[in-house]
Design a protein around this nucleic acid. Structure first.
Length: 204
DNA sequence: CCCTGATTCGC
DNA sequence: GCGAATCAGG
């Protein structure tokens, strides 16, 4: 498979949307994330600037004239001293039991949804009153074993159940192995996706 | 370990 | 131009 206009277009779109190289590769198919990254660089959009308009911005610095065959002379250019805007994204996460109006809004970043895949239901409010005592107790138990991952540590296969108050330091994600195709571990899937019937029967 | 992007270099 | 191998890092 080669880089047809259509595939390049998809690549550009997804890259500008903030999708990771591996996600893009998965979407395109028949290519690895390395291929995607390589193409991204060749296209010159290593800078995820949606604004566009630039051109070169920061070409290759002087670099070392000599190329070591295998040594770690690889990436030495840590030229990131100037571009570090995308950092505030703790928004896509709900709060377990608090209000916590942390940040007013994200003015500069309209399209930013890295972790939770589209189409996937957002993490619900773990407000206890709607959950069966058993499941609740189970969750309490599980949360003691939580890996307490930070936002950055979440992956497609880690439980994304939020624990604690996002407005404080005491906030993390469950992080236990998530169920295939689900955003949560077994215990949290249990409280997140309840059959309508059981919900009704539990009315009290 | 899972993942991320960056870079190099033989093809 | 392409992308696997490799590197550096969260």
């Amino acid at each position: 498979m080669s880089w047809t206009d259509e595939r390049v277009e998809t690549l550009k779109r997804m890259w500008s949307e903030g999708q990771s190289a591996s996600q893009i590769a998965k979407e395109l198919g028949a290519v690895t994330r390395n291929a995607v990254i390589g193409k991204v660089h060749r296209l010159g959009l290593s800078n995820r600037n949606e604004g566009e308009g630039d051109a070169a911005a920061n070409a290759a610095p002087a670099a070392a004239p000599k190329a070591e065959p295998k040594a770690k002379a690889a990436a030495k250019a840590k030229s990131k001293a100037k571009s570090e805007p995308p950092k505030a994204e703790a928004a896509a996460t709900p709060e377990p039991a608090t209000e916590a109006a942390v940040s007013p809004a994200q003015p500069a970043f309209p399209s930013r949804r890295p972790i939770v895949p589209a189409g996937q239901p957002l993490p619900p409010q773990p407000s206890a009153n709607e959950i069966s005592p058993e499941a609740l107790a189970n969750v309490r138990e599980v949360e003691k074993k939580a890996r307490k991952l930070s936002l950055m540590e979440l992956t497609e296969r880690t439980c994304k159940w939020p624990i604690g108050d996002p407005a404080t330091e005491k906030f993390w994600f469950c992080g236990l192995p998530a169920q295939q195709g689900k955003p949560y571990c077994e215990a949290h899937v249990g409280v997140a996706f309840q059959p309508m019937s059981s919900r009704r029967d539990r009315r009290r």
